[in-house]
Write a protein that binds this DNA or RNA. Structure first.
Length: 310
DNA sequence: TAGGCCATCTGGTCCT
DNA sequence: AGGACCAGATGGCCTA
């Protein structure tokens, strides 16, 4: 329905969009839309607030009469009011989108990987947040320390490879150790039951590959729902987070990863991970000097922290 | 240069 | 009537 409307608009009203960059006074730069503009310019000025109806439309040429409410003539005054309304609406819409973006910025700060220099895209932020919530829920549900690699894999489901690398780097995992060059999880040989339940499939073949069906997790660690293929590309640099640049860009904004990233002695936390520790960075003792924990931790943080300290 | 991401404008729809 | 929300369109910027 909306598409039809948009198509109609496309073909009926010539777009006179000016450059969108002129955000200060929108319509002043852009002018009115084509239809309104033509209406304005094609008629004489009237000041009687548009009470007069446009009777020409009904009898124009051989075309059938138009149904519905007759279109009011666009007077100069009405055009001005319409223009003002549009400006106000544009301003509100900008404000609304700015609010939305600031909310997304806040979300970026509380998801596992926060980098001021390498900002996650909106969609990646939402995906990562969803995976994060899922992972934390599973931790609470299971009531035991999770496998780090499994945890990271859950976080990275559906994320682009650059984001996956970023998350891995932020979690002190060398992404090369859990992703193959093809972008598939390589360790550990964690087995997800196949949809039919007859065979088990390791992440080696299904984890990050297109054939993986994350909608079917294991009973121990079910997977978040799959949202469809992740974006093929990203503006993020596909750099390995093991690189110094990436490391500098990664902040420990994560309440879950930070305890692991820091020496276990400091937090008394160890993950149940088979080969992960070998794959983890050797410099796991806070290599980032600009590491920051968010000031406003979610309420669940303290509970989780307590949990991992017991 | 293509593709992804983003900001903005815009008109429609719903709600108060 | 006006505001909030939504989605399509558009153009700019950036990167591979």
């Amino acid at each position: 329905m909306r598409s039809a409307v948009m198509l109609t608009r496309l073909f009926s009203a010539p777009s006179v969009l000016a450059e969108p960059g002129s955000c200060e006074d929108g319509l002043e730069a852009r002018g009115l839309d084509g239809r309104t503009h033509s209406d304005i310019t094609g008629e004489d000025e009237e000041e009687d607030e548009g009470e007069e109806e446009d009777g020409d439309e009904d009898t124009e040429g051989d075309r059938p009469k138009k149904r519905g409410p007759k279109k009011r003539r666009m007077t100069q005054a009405r055009a001005e009011r319409s223009k003002l309304r549009r400006q106000k609406a544009n301003s509100r819409e900008r404000t609304r989108m700015h609010d939305l973006n600031s909310g997304l910025d806040n979300l970026r700060k509380v998801v596992p990987c926060y980098s001021k220099t390498q900002k996650l895209s909106k969609i990646e932020t939402l995906r990562l947040a969803k995976n994060y919530i899922w992972a934390l829920s599973e931790i609470l549900r299971a009531g035991k320390r999770p496998d780090l690699v499994l945890y990271v894999q859950t976080l990275c489901k559906g994320l682009s490879q650059p984001t996956t690398n970023l998350v891995a780097g932020c979690l002190q995992l060398n992404s090369r150790n859990f992703l193959t060059e093809q972008g598939c999880f390589s360790v550990p040989p964690y087995h997800y039951p196949c949809p039919s339940g007859s065979n088990a499939h390791s992440l080696q073949t299904h984890g990050y590959c297109s054939t993986y069906d994350p909608g079917h997790g294991s009973a121990e660690y079910p997977s978040p729902e799959y949202e469809g293929p992740f974006s093929a590309g990203s503006s993020l640099k596909p750099q390995d987070c093991g690189s110094p640049d990436a490391e500098r860009s990664c902040h420990y904004a994560m309440r879950y990863s930070a305890p692991y990233a820091q020496p276990a002695a400091a937090h008394g936390l160890g993950f149940e991970s088979g080969g992960v520790r070998a794959g983890a960075h050797s410099q796991s003792a806070m290599p980032y000097h600009d590491t920051q924990l968010p000031h406003n931790r979610p309420p669940a943080y303290e509970e989780l922290n307590t949990f991992f300290h017991n």
